[in-house]
């Protein structure tokens, strides 16, 4: 554990809390992509099945349980409790275009052809692109509420901080995992455009609005 890793995890935690609070306080999930949330739930389910086979630490276990539980809680809020506020008309990204290539890639490019390892690889690749339905939704409506922008910023920062963590670990422990690193870089790059808008608009008190 180093400072980048901890900051990354905290940023991830913060993103989820922001999202849940937004939905809960406003009693609405308007502007949030249910498809991205479904992909995240699938990501954490596939990755954290090792909860039962691999003990790392109490921190690790608590975080994994939290990520799985909150991903399903979000889906419950979006598709059941506050279903009437879910903006499904704008949430039209075809997730099969992500799931199919990600599945094939996980079967071909992995460290070991075993059930758990392929599930882990699948989750790493899927996480990298899981935000695309959400970003697509923002570009389709041309705007995002400030709170949604803060959520996206925290979520995007998390993998960026992990990249610094991987650089740190490479030099201090000679540890690196190419699959995680490349997917993490792709994941972060997908947020670049959003980061730019966040710094130039949202932080100056303006609403995130895309040029028409």
């Amino acid at each position: 554990m180093n400072v980048f890793r901890l900051a990354g995890d905290m940023s991830h935690l913060l993103a989820i809390i922001i999202l849940l609070l937004k939905i809960w306080k406003t009693r609405s999930c308007a502007g949030i992509s249910g498809r991205s949330q479904l992909l995240f739930a699938l990501t954490y389910t596939a990755r954290y099945l090792d909860l039962v086979t691999n003990w790392v630490s109490l921190y690790n276990t608590v975080m994994k349980v939290f990520f799985i539980a909150t991903s399903y809680a979000t889906i419950y809020l979006m598709y059941l409790k506050f279903k009437a506020t879910y903006d499904s008309n704008h949430d039209t990204f075809r997730v099969e275009f992500l799931l199919l290539p990600v599945t094939i890639l996980a079967l071909v490019l992995n460290h070991e052809f075993s059930f758990m390892e392929i599930l882990w690889t699948f989750s790493i690749y899927l996480e990298a692109v899981a935000i695309l339905p959400q970003l697509f939704m923002v570009s389709k409506t041309g705007e995002a509420e400030s709170i949604t922008s803060h959520y996206l910023f925290a979520l995007g920062s998390y993998r960026l901080l992990y990249i610094f963590n991987w650089i740190w670990r490479y030099y201090t422990e000679e540890y690196y995992d190419l699959i995680a690193i490349i997917a993490g870089v792709v994941q972060t790059v997908l947020y670049c455009d959003f980061f730019y808008l966040y710094f130039t608009k949202v932080l100056k008190g303006k609403k995130l609005q895309l040029p028409a």
């Binding site: 890793r5 995890d9 991830h12 090792d50 691999n54 790392v56 630490s57 690790n60 975080m63 994994k64 990520f67 460290h111 070991e112 390892e117 882990w120 992990y162 963590n165 540890y175 995992d177 995680a180």
Partner: peptide, 10 residues
């Protein structure tokens, strides 16, 4: 051959 390192990241 080589055992994979333990996955300790989230």
């Amino acid at each position: 051959c080589c055992k994979l390192p333990q996955k300790d990241e989230l």
